[in-house]
């Protein structure tokens, strides 16, 4: 009885703290906030500009690289089989690296350790192409971040960063993406901020870009100093965003305004 009451109070206080988190049934991909034309551009592979990048990635997948002249395909074979669902599991704890890595970093670990080739820079054409090619194999697959004690700290840090105010405007990610999604910021609809389409083609960039590039855009809007590419903060935020979107369908390469 007493324990029941205490538990009740505890639950209530937990709910109060996270009252603004989006209920699973209410989650919507950024896709649903776009106009019809942009949606059509994404769903039709012949008009989706991101597919060019995926094709480039397919060629890189087959191309021998580095000292050992090995291609990704030499070890991994048919990507449509072997990479299916993989992007939907990243970021993930990586035993070789001894830390949580995102998909781009995992690919670079293969470049370094398995191909003996130089790592590819963040936002470089080739890394985006390989990431988009690998992520394309997960299209329609549900996001499936593993429940892994080794990534618990990163997940906690990501949640904290998402809810923390920063920058000259003193806003948090949660203020826009949990509390005010669906509202208009200036003329723009605020989406829920899900990571399920990346890497994607953004019309404003007229280019492919990573999730971290998108997060930098939001931080610049907040007049905050963006975290640097590959920083533990960004990996933690990416992990939290993926966990927050657990079960949602992957869309890469998506198109966004």
């Amino acid at each position: 009885m007493k324990i029941g009451a205490a538990l009740c109070v505890l639950l209530l206080s937990v709910i109060a703290v996270h009252a603004a988190e989006i209920a699973t049934a209410d989650r919507k991909s950024g896709f649903e906030f776009m106009g019809r034309d942009t949606q059509a551009m994404q769903t039709d592979d012949t008009s989706n500009p991101g597919m060019l990048n995926v094709l480039d990635g397919g060629a890189l997948w087959e191309r021998p690289e580095g000292a050992d002249k090995k291609a990704c395909a030499s070890c991994h074979g048919d990507a449509s089989q072997r990479m299916k669902g993989v992007a939907a599991r990243y970021p993930a704890f990586d035993a070789t690296a001894g830390q949580v890595v995102d998909l781009g970093q995992r690919i670079n670990l293969c470049r370094r350790d398995h191909q003996k080739a130089p790592e590819l820079a963040y936002e470089s054409r080739d890394l985006l192409a390989l990431s988009a090619f690998v992520a394309r194999q997960s299209r329609g697959q549900p996001i499936a971040i593993a429940d892994d004690a080794r990534s618990a700290n990163a997940l906690m840090q990501g949640r904290k960063l998402f809810n923390e105010r920063m920058g000259q405007l003193n806003l948090s990610c949660a203020i826009c993406h949990d509390d005010n999604w669906g509202q208009k910021l200036g003329g723009t609809s605020i989406p829920q901020g899900h990571p399920n389409g990346y890497p994607l083609y953004r019309l404003e960039w007229q280019a492919m870009g990573s999730l971290q590039r998108r997060l930098r855009n939001c931080m610049i809007g907040m007049r905050a100093e963006p975290f640097s590419y590959g920083s533990s903060e960004f990996i933690a935020l990416e992990l939290f965003l993926m966990q927050r979107a657990q079960g949602m369908a992957m869309e890469s390469p998506a198109v966004r305004p």
Partner: peptide
């Protein structure tokens, strides 16, 4: 959520240009 337009305290990680 309205920013404080004329005080500096309580803000973190402000971009260098601001």
């Amino acid at each position: 959520i309205m920013p404080s337009y004329y005080v500096l305290d309580g803000v973190v990680r402000v971009a260098p240009s601001f």
